[in-house]
């Protein structure tokens, strides 16, 4: 129990290093074909080469632009619908059932429909990503709008707050934690779906396509690298959102 933090951190490196060693031994002795598992140094070399050549930045940019568009559209729509349903029970009854029914369909199931309607276009992909971001954002915003306790509503009544000020001072702040985690979930969903879009819509450009191309040509080193980069970006996005949440929700922390 009294193991200090440094030791814990070092322990975390044991398994990855062991895996690396096993990987190296296996490939060095050619127990597995290099096609399936390239040498660690090959992967490292390819990694450097990719960044030096610079094409990876084009793909990176492509994916990030796409995800940004879809994400923004999705969370805006989700925020609006979530707030509307959270504030008005009539609107909830109007939109709720349809929303919940549509939500039951696995998101990838919409791909054939989107392709049929919009073709293999940029728009189809952005709608697809937006839809993925839309669900969690709507749900979280809706939940958040209902977080305000009855007790606080009474405070608002005592101070004779009107509707807009009630919304601004009471409802939205109390919904903020929920909304922010909605944004975070939507973001990681969108990031997954941009990769999905690039794979399933089978169009050129983006990290997903780069990965798929590498798969087709059985360039295992590039597959590894793209997984690494995609994971890393997902991690960074999540991390940035967490920091933002902590800053905006400072009021929750007690001494």
């Amino acid at each position: 129990m009294d193991v200090n933090k440094e030791v814990l951190k070092l322990r975390g490196l044991v398994v990855p290093l062991a895996l690396l060693a096993v990987w190296w031994i296996i490939t060095k002795n050619e127990w597995v074909s290099a096609v399936f598992l390239p040498l660690p140094e090959t992967v490292a070399a390819t990694f450097v080469k990719l960044f030096l050549k610079g094409k990876i930045f084009v793909d990176l940019n492509e994916s990030i632009t796409k995800v940004a568009k879809g994400f923004l559209v999705g969370i805006t729509a989700g925020f609006l619908l979530g707030t509307a349903m959270g504030l008005s029970s009539t609107l909830e009854k109007l939109f709720g059932p349809l929303f919940n029914a549509v939500r039951q369909v696995p998101i990838l199931g919409w791909i054939p429909v989107l392709i049929l309607i919009f073709g293999l276009t940029e728009l189809a992909k952005i709608i697809f990503i937006a839809l993925g971001a839309f669900y969690p954002m709507t749900l979280n915003t809706f939940d958040g709008c209902r977080q305000l306790k009855k007790e606080y509503l009474e405070v608002a009544r005592v101070f004779e707050f009107n509707k807009p000020r009630l919304l601004w001072r009471f409802i939205l702040p109390s919904a903020l934690p929920s909304i922010l985690s909605g944004i975070r979930v939507s973001m990681s969903e969108a990031w997954m779906l941009v990769i999905g879009a690039e794979i399933f819509f089978k169009t050129r450009g983006g990290l997903g396509d780069m990965m798929w191309e590498a798969k087709t040509r059985v360039q295992m080193d590039i597959v590894f690298i793209t997984i690494l980069i995609i994971g890393l970006i997902g991690f960074i996005l999540n991390y940035v959102m967490k920091i933002l949440e902590n800053r905006l929700l400072r009021w929750r922390i007690s001494n």
Partner: peptide, 29 residues
């Protein structure tokens, strides 16, 4: 309710997302 009556509840009911200053100033907004 009206502003001619001030209320102190048992559970203070300060808004957790506002500083003390802004909480106190709530009725002046």
């Amino acid at each position: 309710p009206g502003l001619d009556r001030g209320v102190v509840f048992q559970d203070h009911r300060l808004l957790p997302w506002l500083t003390v200053e802004r909480n106190v100033g709530l009725g002046l907004e």
